[in-house]
């Protein structure tokens, strides 16, 4: 029964698990990109620091990184609540707070880079 499930099929509970790993790879690639950019440009003042994030491709990459981060953090935090918080009501409140917190962080990220 469980042998012919495919990733792009309907959801088998696999979506978040896979999403967490895909976002992990995207974030790892961005971390390496940022490290290389910083090591090459060595920004030492405001203008140089500003210019690290001023190219459009860097803004896009950074926003993709942050979007990945918020989704990844959602899956991770939900796993933590599911493991340690058993009462449904409390868990629901914590999950809602987590979503509100991450959406607010997302808005802030948009404000910075758009």
């Amino acid at each position: 029964m469980t042998t012919n499930r495919i990733i792009v099929g309907a959801h088998y509970g696999l979506r978040d698990w896979l999403g967490q790993r895909v976002t992990a790879v995207l974030m790892a690639l961005y971390a390496i990109l940022l490290a290389v950019v910083l090591l090459v440009k060595k920004p030492g003042d405001y203008l140089a620091w500003f210019n690290v994030f001023s190219p459009i491709w860097m803004k896009v990459a950074t926003l993709v990184f942050l979007a990945s981060l918020f989704y990844h953090a959602w899956v991770g935090m939900r796993d933590i609540w599911m493991d340690y918080v058993k009462p449904t009501g409390v868990r629901l409140v914590l999950e809602v707070l987590t979503i509100v917190y991450l959406v607010a962080c997302g808005m802030w990220a948009l404000k910075i880079f758009v």
């Binding site: 994030f53 802030w108 404000k111 910075i112």
Partner: peptide, 12 residues
Amino acid sequence: LPLLLWLLDRSL
């Protein structure tokens, strides 16, 4: 996250 976003926001 808020601390890091705040430092990033202010510095840019």
